[in-house]
Design a protein around this nucleic acid. Sequence first.
DNA 1: AAGCTCATCAACCGCAGCCGT
DNA 2: GACGGCTGCGGTTGATGAGCT
Length: 318
Amino acid sequence: MGRSPCCEKVGLKRGRWTAEEDEILIKYIQSNGEGSWKSLPKNAGLLRCGKSCRLRWINYLRGDLKRGNITDEEDEMIVMLHKAFGNRWSMIASHLPGRTDNEIKNHWNSRLSRQTYRFFSNKNKTKTSLDIATLVDQKKRRGGRVSRNVAKKYNQNTRFSKNTMSTTKRSTTMDKQDDQNMSDCSNIVIKDTKESQVHDNINVTCEELELNWLEFQDDGLLDMDGFLQGEAIDSNVVSSMNDDDEIEQWLAEIEVENIKKNERSVDEKEDHERLSLNSLEVCYNESKWDMEFSFTGFDMCDEEDNMLVSLWEDSNYP
DNA sequence: AAGCTCATCAACCGCAGCCGT
DNA sequence: GACGGCTGCGGTTGATGAGCT
């Protein structure tokens, strides 16, 4: 027995609301107040389902809504609140008077999240500087941009595989077409790890990691803001991260630090506990980029809103 | 000018939580 | 505690228009 529909859909109108419908809804709510959404359409004489009425009212017709573009201040607020709350859009919206969760969600998906899609290129180790300021306002830019659909498509290729941890290796069986697709894409993608699994394997070895394919989870995203708010990134400097030997050494150090920081051995952990990389710090000291991971806590697999930032080589961008 | 791609926004869908019975 | 209805939330889809080739 399937779930019963929220409303009787037969005969109900769908799609865009007309001005007449808006007027009817406004008048009804002004007279009778919000609530009782299920019975509202019938009482008001609207051929809409209750949920549709509620959404229309909350997202569009409510009198206290702020119109117009989201300001820079609101942008900053959203970014900060997203750090704190993740994708809890209603929570974020509650801190932004006149803005709805839907509006903020759309804004985030279409603009703010994209700031981290495009990042830096390093495969060719060419001396190209990337002005981060240009990442902020790309509204007019068309070419070379990664749409959500494209990003989603590529993300499907980058799910966690079982028996790896968050610094899992990229599938070596990925076919060349996928490789090509990915290299045509931006070199950073944010992906939701909700369906992903993070596993117990603390003993990640450098052999298990395909170099230049690194994934950072959750807090990594926060620290990316440091990049975004900073000055231009010289990809020639960043390219030092792609030195295989250096990265191997770097990862080996991570592993050692990881073991040090976690007093208990893997064997002592309960089944439900998971090890996860959840912090990435990036510092720039005069002439060198330093990156530091930390593993804090366990049970990360229970987190619903983990975000993962993936870097890969991009020979075409910028 | 036509066709294509993509960004944006509005709306829909399914699920989970709350609450009353 | 079980059940069902209602509501709210977050993810996703679809329509539309603008920009690009």
